[in-house]
């Protein structure tokens, strides 16, 4: 991330100039959801309940956008067929 801008470069009225999609909250995560598409019944409840809009339905399968997923575990808890596991983040 570059230097914060000086006042002359900011829009007036203090309106934010970037979308929060530029801000990756994925590094808040201790546990990561992993979807087993063999078990998944594509009910979309994980997509519906994800508070971070991190579950993606690509038309065939459930993907997790790890850029944003904070690892709360709601998806795993709500999955009616237990197709989502919360696994520890790999520590590199």
């Amino acid at each position: 991330m570059s230097q914060p801008r000086g006042w002359k470069e900011l829009p007036i009225g203090a309106v934010p100039f970037r979308l929060s999609t530029d801000y990756k909250t994925g590094d808040w995560r201790a546990l990561r959801p992993v979807v087993d598409m063999n078990k998944c019944v594509k009910c979309m409840l994980c997509w519906i309940f994800c508070p971070d809009m991190a579950i993606i339905w690509d038309g065939e399968k459930i993907l997790v956008n790890y850029d944003y997923c904070k690892g709360c575990g709601i998806c795993a808890h709500e999955c009616p067929v237990k197709a989502i596991d919360m696994v520890p983040e790999p520590s590199e």
């Binding site: 999609t21 508070p51 971070d52 709360c72």
Partner: peptide, 18 residues
């Protein structure tokens, strides 16, 4: 509501907004 918001992990508020 877009991702990248900084509500706590597991907060219900963004689910309601969504």
């Amino acid at each position: 509501i877009l991702p990248g918001h900084r509500l706590c992990a597991g907060c219900a508020a963004p689910i309601i907004v969504k």
